[in-house]
Design a protein around this nucleic acid. Structure first.
Length: 836
RNA sequence: GCGAGAGUGGCGGAAUUGGCAGACGCGCUAGACUUAGGAUCUAGUGGGCAACCGUAGGGGUUCAAGUCCCCUCUCUCGCACCA
């Protein structure tokens, strides 16, 4: 037992006594928090270095963009991740929880054009501010591993990786119609074009198509492997979004003969419907259109193509728009039955998917059905359910499961589901087609016509053509003295010293690639950069560090990156594996997504709405620990929801109560009882168990709730147990349990309670299952499942004994009214149910 | 249309995966202490006067259903003429 007040003095030593205003100083987070943060920094508490004798745990939070100020969303994402990392640390793991900045990108350059401040300065200033804000969070970030992606020491390796990809044919340049954002003045990857109107992910401007020569990464080489999620524990939502995005569909390619020896290959997932093809459709951009269109139809086909090309440049049309098309005048021959079928051009067929041409089976495809109806094309049924179909059809019959092939030559009578494969085999045998797989996934367009990004390390020589920059010449530095003008063109294009160079191969005059890389390149491998920031060895990172820390054990961040960053980084890891840089298949073993904190008005936070919650203000008002606790307590983490400015008061009150509870002594004599001691001990072990399991499961809200419950019990028993051994043990253990959530407060309490070293270096408490179990329990006594009475009984009471006591209860006697129980059910510790 | 997820008090949310619905907190009500309280403490708080009724709605399985099965409705997110 320690004398009240004694430990208060110890606390004062740390703070220099400056905040002792009353006999027992109040909870003053603004004094405690900076003090401890400085201590931790000085003592290197959170430096993560290889410790071979300890299991490692690599926890990672998504790389923030240095937009200027830390947002409450950053806190919401990072605080529970930090708590989880701290918990693992106390569980004996050697934890790495690094932080850095995704520092290239458009906002910096736009600021440069608008406000005449260099992107470098704008970015570094923001980083400096955000670094301080991040530090106020009190997370266990190892700042010595910080990476900033716009620094040459970083992007050198982005360029190096690009060159390695190039060597292996994973990076290539291609002239093709690409999406261009007229506001951002750059091309975008397919993933960065969103929504029905196909707008730019960043600025929401509808994109336009441009025919440009651009660099791509061959992510499609890994399409199949990217569909394999067997090695990772990722949320179902992300898995399904990625599957959906990759969009694998299996079927067949079938070749149709056209006049003048041309062949037209189509992709279909329904080879079982081949006998029902009544026309064919080409996309307006299909190269065969010009060749097969007959003189008679030339004019209208040309007009249609022109209209279609205009259309793609304007807004994308609504889904339910009326289908349009024109006849080419030509006929194709259906290879399965020799029929002549008309070939049309229509914009409901996309050049970008499959072969840009389809076989139309109006009876069994909704789109073809609508088209056939409009243009009076024949509709032939070749699949029917057992009960048949009534003609004329009012809608396409698209079911496969219950369908049977009819009017299909040798396959008539075969179930459609089996027919698919049988027909493919038959086509292959006859040389008419073959099994084929199609993906929705496109190769990743990485060229950006902007300055503030990683220069693509390529040189164009008149003699030698495309020449990669030799490894020894890396990094290709971004020139600092660029001019930022609102012309919409990259300053690199107008920077002679950058543009003109010598060919590394022949020494002749050459020019540099002026496009820079998509910033998603930077974030595709940053988890490896943390191992050895700005590495100066022979590869992008230190292999010894890699061998110890990799792969990332836990990754946390927003679900909005499911089809961008999270696919890209998986692709990078697989490609890097094939380069021999890493020896595993997946970058992040476990992924957890947080939800989004909305404004108090339930709308997305935005400056224009004026509903933004600034974490700095909250930290000033309540302290960092309160903000942390509230962010963990207020919502289901993966859901998020509207901010509640009153709710945070509850968390502040909680921490205040904890402070007073553990530090303010009881006046007068304390008379401990065995019963209360036991109650305290039991609740303590129950709380350890709950807190441990909840933290494991990312149930941060119930983790905090369990601490609140425990503090409620503590305040009940305080008058009788204050200062006893059981009390002290409970107080210290409670402080340990609080440490991941409120690290500063826990540290202060720990030191005042006489704890050794840092609370954060203590082992996580263990619970004793025997002490968790209640001895006396209240069970409910039911009749036919309805609660009639309650009974307090020993937890291990025999069923017979319970039955005897339950049946003897007055309320039960009355309710039974002399009826005899037919059956009784006893669930120990829960209920006793009498069935009559 | 396809895919994923969700519907529980006035609000945020709990409920050992079939076993006392509403833990914990916000808010609210009453009281205490106060010159004062938007501070703090104590008590209460799903509905109904009651028996009872209550987890989006309807049916089912079971001694027992928020939880399992079938149908319907609503909402959120992602993709979208993907052949």
């Amino acid at each position: 037992m320690f004398a009240p007040g004694q430990n208060l003095t110890r606390g004062l030593n740390f703070s220099g006594g400056i905040f002792m205003t009353t006999k027992y100083d109040r909870y003053q987070p603004r004094k405690i928090e900076p003090f401890w943060r400085q201590k931790w920094e000085e003592s290197g508490l959170y430096r993560s270095v290889i410790k071979k004798d300890k299991p490692k745990y690599y926890a990672l939070t998504m790389l923030p963009y240095p937009s200027g100020d830390l947002h409450i969303g950053h806190w919401y994402a990072m605080v529970p991740s930090d708590a989880q990392a701290r918990f693992m640390r106390m569980q004996g793991y050697n934890v790495l929880f690094p932080i850095g900045f995704d520092a290239f990108g458009l906002p910096a350059e736009n600021a440069a054009i608008k406000r005449n401040v260099h992107p470098q300065k704008w970015t570094m200033d923001n980083i400096e501010r955000m670094r301080e804000q991040l530090k106020s969070m009190g997370a266990i970030f190892d700042w010595e591993r910080e990476v900033i992606t716009c620094l040459p020491g970083y992007y050198k390796w982005s360029q190096w990786l690009f060159l390695k990809f190039y060597e292996r044919g994973l990076a290539y340049k291609k002239l093709s119609p690409v999406d261009f954002c007229p506001t951002c003045n750059t091309t975008l990857a397919r993933e960065q074009v969103w929504g029905e109107d196909r707008h730019c992910e960043r600025c929401e401007t509808p994109v336009v198509k441009k025919e440009l020569d651009q660099w791509f990464l061959k992510i499609t080489d890994y399409a199949d492997e990217l569909l394999d999620f067997s090695q990772i524990d990722w949320p179902e939502r992300v898995v399904s979004m990625q599957k959906n995005w990759i969009g694998k569909s299996e079927g067949a390619e079938v070749t149709f003969e056209l006049p003048n020896q041309e062949k037209l290959t189509v992709f279909t997932t329904r080879p079982d419907t081949l006998w029902g093809v009544t026309f064919m459709v080409l996309a307006p951009e299909h190269p065969l259109v010009d060749q097969i269109t007959t003189e008679e139809y030339k004019e209208q086909v040309k007009a249609y193509q022109y209209a279609a090309s205009r259309q793609s440049e304007i807004e994308r049309l609504a889904v339910d728009k009326e289908k349009t098309g024109v006849f080419t005048g030509s006929y194709a021959v259906n290879p399965v039955n020799g029929e002549k079928i008309p070939v049309w051009v229509a914009d409901y067929v996309m050049m970008g998917y499959g072969t840009g041409a389809i076989m139309a089976v109006p009876a069994h495809d909704e789109r073809d059905f609508a088209f056939a109806r409009k243009y009076n094309l024949p509709i032939r049924i070749v699949i029917t359910p057992d009960e048949g179909l009534s003609e004329p059809l009012t809608a396409a019959y698209t079911e496969v499961e219950n369908g049977k092939m009819v009017n299909s030559g040798p396959f008539t009578g075969v179930p459609a589901a089996e027919g698919k494969n049988q027909v493919i085999a038959w086509l292959e045998e006859k040389g008419l087609g073959h099994k084929a797989v199609n993906y929705r996934l496109r190769d990743w367009l990485i060229s950006r016509q902007r300055y503030w990004g990683t220069p693509i390390p390529i040189i164009y020589c008149e003699k030698c053509g495309t020449v990669p920059v030799p490894e020894k010449d890396l990094p290709v530095l971004l020139p600092e003295d660029a001019e930022f003008l609102p012309t919409g063109e990259s300053p690199l294009k107008h920077h002679p010293a950058f543009l003109h160079t010598d060919c590394p191969r022949c020494g002749g005059p050459a020019r540099r690639e002026t496009d820079t890389m998509d910033t998603f390149i930077c974030s595709s491998w940053y988890q490896y950069a943390y191992l050895s920031p700005y590495y100066e060895g022979t590869g992008p990172f230190d292999q010894e560090e890699a061998a110890y820390w990799l792969p990332v054990d836990l990754y946390t961040g927003g679900v909005e990156h499911a089809c961008m960053h999270l696919i890209y980084t998986r692709f990078f890891t697989k490609a890097m594996r094939d380069l021999g840089l890493v020896n595993f298949d997946e970058p992040m073993l476990t992924l957890r997504n947080q939800g989004i904190i909305l404004g108090e008005d339930s709308e997305k936070m935005s400056k224009s709405r004026g509903n933004v919650v600034a974490p700095d203000d909250l930290v000033n008002a309540y302290g960092s620990d309160t903000v942390r606790v509230y962010l963990m307590f207020g919502w289901r983490w993966e859901m998020g929801g509207p901010w509640d400015s009153r709710g945070i008061e509850g968390s502040y009150r909680f921490l205040n109560r904890v402070w007073e509870l553990l530090l303010f002594p009881v006046e007068g004599e304390v008379k401990p009882t065995a019963e209360k001691t036991e109650t305290l001990q039991r609740k303590l072990h129950q709380t350890i168990k709950r807190a441990t399991l909840d933290l494991k499961e990312f149930a941060f809200n119930t983790y905090i709730a369990s601490l609140m419950e425990f503090s409620n019990l503590l305040s009940k028993v305080k008058p009788v147990l204050w200062g006893t051994e059981a009390w002290q043990e409970a107080a210290k253990t409670f402080t340990l349990l609080l440490a991941p959530a409120a690290p500063h407060l826990a540290e202060e309490l720990w030191s005042r309670l006489g704890g050794e070293d840092s609370v954060h270096d203590q082992p996580w408490p263990q619970w004793d299952e025997a002490l968790v179990v209640e001895q006396q329990v209240e069970i409910v006594v039911q009749i036919n499942g309805k609660i009639k009475e309650r009974l307090v009984i020993a937890v291990n009471a025999a069923e017979e004994e319970v039955k005897e006591q339950a049946l003897a209860l007055a309320g039960i006697q009355a309710a039974l009214e002399g009826k005899t129980p037919r059956k009784t059910i006893y669930v120990p510790g829960r209920l006793f149910n009498i069935v009559v």
